[in-house]
Each structure stands twice: as structure tokens, then as C-alpha cells.
């Protein structure tokens, strides 16, 4: 994941907060504002420096930023490819949730170096899902929260998302209550758009 996360943070800061903020954060983290190239590996602790610097610069909690990053990945026009690839997960939000366990394998198909944490989905009640994220990927919980929220919007589903637990090692449990699967219009998705 390292190959993409730094670049994603860079694009997020640049696209959402502006070039100036990105440059400030990069300098504070000891980086050239030129930033990261996709698909190249960087030292693991760089991500932490980057997030810490962004947190200070924007005066926002790290988890808040990560949640926004998750939303950005799905909803921002510059990340259209990510949103499309996620939408291949199913024709409804319900379907999409059920495909989440396949997400790490799907990611590996796209990019063998892309190691996502293992995901487990339980379905304890008709409208209730519980997503468990395996440890190892710090910040995965908040990112998933933002990403799922944006995906629900994308499908036009009304959901209640809540973190049930988040550990410092990256493990997290999220509950997803599907209140109305067809609450809104959602965004169109056609298979053969490319």
C-alpha cells in the first residue's frame, strides 16, 4: 500500500486544500514539494511524518484527515478511476458491501504490490453489517469510514456508519446500518465507460 498511500495524501492535500497547503506540509515533513511518484516505494515512516505535518498545518486530527482522504478517493473527480474500480464491486451498496472481502484480492489483481489489510464482513441482521479490518495498516479504519460513506452516496444508499473500535495497530471494526438502499439517485455507473 505504501506505493500509493503517500501519493494519495499528496493528491488529497493538493486537490482539496490547495497547492499552498501541500507545499507547506511537504516542507514541514522534510520533503520536496514535488512529492511522491506513484508506484515507487518510500520509507514507511514518511507517511507518519506527512500525516503529522498535515495535522498541524490544517489544525485537524489525524483521523479526521484520514476520513476525508477516504471520501476524497471516491468522490473527487481526479480520482475517478478509483471510484469506478470500486463500483465494479456490485450493482447495489448491499452487493458492494458483500464484495468487500474480495477487495484485497481485487487490489492485488490491479497492482500486485498493493497489499490491503484483510477484511471480514459479518451480516448479523438484515440491515446491519459489521466490517472488521485486520491490523497492520495504520489509519485503515478512518480511511475506510470515509470511503464507505462516499460509496454509499455513490450508490444512493442511506447508511449509518459507526466505528465500533479502532486500535493503534490499524485494526478496526465498523458497523454499517443500511437504512435505505435506494434513498437517493446515486451516481450512474456503466460497465463499458472506457
Amino acid at each position: 500500500m505504501n506505493v500509493l498511500i503517500n501519493r494519495a495524501i499528496q493528491c488529497f492535500l493538493r486537490d482539496v486544500w490547495g497547492m499552498g497547503v501541500w507545499c507547506d506540509v511537504a516542507r514541514a515533513a522534510g520533503l520536496s514539494p514535488r512529492g511522491f511518484e506513484p508506484l515507487l516505494d518510500y520509507p514507511a515512516d514518511l507517511t507518519h511524518h506527512l500525516l503529522a505535518a498535515a495535522s498541524v498545518r490544517l489544525n485537524r486530527g489525524r483521523d479526521d484527515l484520514l476520513e476525508d482522504l477516504g471520501t476524497y478517493l471516491v468522490s473527487h473527480p481526479s480520482r475517478a478511476a478509483v471510484r469506478r474500480l470500486l463500483r465494479f464491486g456490485g450493482i447495489s451498496f448491499h452487493d458492494f458491501l458483500q464484495s468487500l472481502e474480495d477487495l484485497p484480492a481485487r487490489a492485488r489483481l490491479a497492482l500486485p504490490e498493493l497489499a490491503l489489510p484483510d477484511l471480514r464482513l459479518e451480516h448479523p441482521a438484515a440491515d446491519l453489517f459489521r466490517l472488521s479490518i485486520a491490523p497492520g495498516f495504520i489509519g485503515a479504519g478512518p480511511v475506510a469510514l470515509g470511503l464507505l460513506r462516499a460509496m454509499a452516496d455513490d450508490y444512493g444508499a442511506l447508511v449509518l456508519l459507526e466505528p465500533e473500535g479502532m486500535d493503534t495497530d490499524g485494526a478496526a471494526v465498523l458497523t454499517i446500518r443500511l437504512l435505505d438502499a435506494t434513498h437517493g439517485e446515486g451516481r450512474a455507473f456503466v460497465l463499458g465507460a472506457l
Binding site: 511518484e37 506513484p38 508506484l39 478511476a81 469506478r84 474500480l85 465494479f88 481485487r106 489483481l109 490491479a110 497492482l111 460497465l191 463499458g192 472506457l194
Partner: peptide
């Protein structure tokens, strides 16, 4: 088929990134 289409798009997205990287 849907997986095939997914792979096709994933490949295209990765190639686009690589193309941009190469240009830089």
C-alpha cells in the same frame, strides 16, 4: 466478464499513471 472489465480498467489506470511518471 465483469472481472475482466475491472482488470481492463485497472490496467488502463495503472498504465496512465506510469505514462505520466515516464513523462516526468
Amino acid at each position: 466478464t465483469v472481472e475482466l472489465l475491472y482488470l481492463y480498467e485497472a490496467k488502463t489506470a495503472v498504465l496512465d499513471e506510469l505514462r505520466a511518471l515516464n513523462a516526468r
